[in-house]
Design a protein around this nucleic acid. Structure first.
Lengths: 192, 192
DNA sequence: CTCGATTGTCTAGCAGTGCTAGGGTCAGGG
DNA sequence: CCCTGACCCTAGCACTGCTAGACAATCGAG
């Protein structure tokens, strides 16, 4: 019995190691550098071991994305609860979101740009993703405005942040004005 | 002399054929399906011919992106000039932008998500890209608001649209509410 | 008209990718 | 102590972007 338990524990450890290593490698050298061979070498196992934990590379990306979503939710909630007033919370939320995207570009990519085989905006959507959206929703309801569906407002708010994050990351927007853009956006969207 | 001219013309024709075929294939089956082999087969030449026109796959993506930027600028200007009032022009612009992204997902991807080796927001930025941005700027100056730098406002407006476009395309947002989100966004951003 | 040079294109191949079939090793239970 | 089954690795498949080198067609000079 305890032998089986130990094996299960070791398997779970190894799975965490795979995800952590993939994330690390992606942040260091980009997702292109995360090949099954390199990943296998870093965890000091052969390639097929990866496939005994995940169906394929997509699922590994998905696992990193879920981890990131959980962290993003935590830091957004922390930022919001440290801010004063509806407007202040919205601004703090935006800053926390963009800060996360800036500090964890590869994880952000896994969450919202790459195909990690995850379902979004459905019942089957994994809990961490729902929760990250909920963290936005909770703090934006009060600035959505009268007669505006909070969910819809949150989607627009999120999409706008996402646009700023990705265009900045992809060097489509000059990085130096990032803060001014964020302020302007929050200023207009959170109109109350 | 005229022989050389004919050859140059044929080369230019073939280059256009490559770009058009790459675009078509990408729209039909996604950029993953655009391999140098498949592309070569479709234009009925061997692979190395591609490399006599472009440095590599990146440059082909870049060429598709430039074509798309030119078209996007045209349709945004057309939409804006058919609309009435500053607010109406902003709304028409947003709809034209999102409509383009929806109708040409692969081209949109080439422009703003994939690496086509193009420079953005610099002097060395190719003209079509500058021009597409200019088409936005021209029609948004009047709704930027007092004391708000028009360029900065345009960047924010563009980023928000980009967020809506990409999250919808990637099935991160429910497609059915797309129009309501657009209306809400324009409503808040173009506040005058 | 012939012959060398140049231009253009193709075949074949390299190093790398994600993924998998099959064999071998080692530990657990009878 | 041996057999069985779980586990992992080697080797390989079909594909990717890209390129070296051979070959053929065309051009200009004599």
């Amino acid at each position: 019995m305890s032998v089986q338990e130990r094996k299960q524990r070791e398997r779970a450890d190894r799975e965490r190691l795979i995800v952590a290593t993939a994330r690390e490698l992606a942040e260091q050298q980009g997702w292109d550098a995360v090949t099954t061979r390199r990943l296998a070498e870093r965890i000091e196992y052969s390639q097929p071991v990866l496939y005994s934990h995940f169906r394929g590379k997509r699922e590994i990306i998905g696992a990193v994305a879920l981890q990131g979503a959980a962290e993003l939710a935590v830091s957004m909630r922390a930022a919001a609860s440290a801010a004063d007033g509806p407007r202040g919370r919205a601004a703090a939320l935006a800053r926390a979101y963009l800060d996360f995207a800036l500090r964890n570009p590869a994880v952000y990519e896994a969450m919202f740009q790459l195909d990690g085989g995850l379902a979004f905006a459905q019942e089957s959507t994994p809990q961490p993703l729902k929760d990250a959206f909920a963290a936005l929703l909770e703090n934006l309801e009060e600035v959505a405005g009268a007669g505006v569906h909070p969910g819809l407002f949150t989607e627009v708010f999120w999409a706008s942040l996402h646009g700023l994050a990705t265009l900045t990351k992809a060097r489509r927007l000059p990085p130096e004005d990032a803060e001014r853009r964020t302020d302007l956006l929050v200023d207009r969207l959170a109109s109350l």
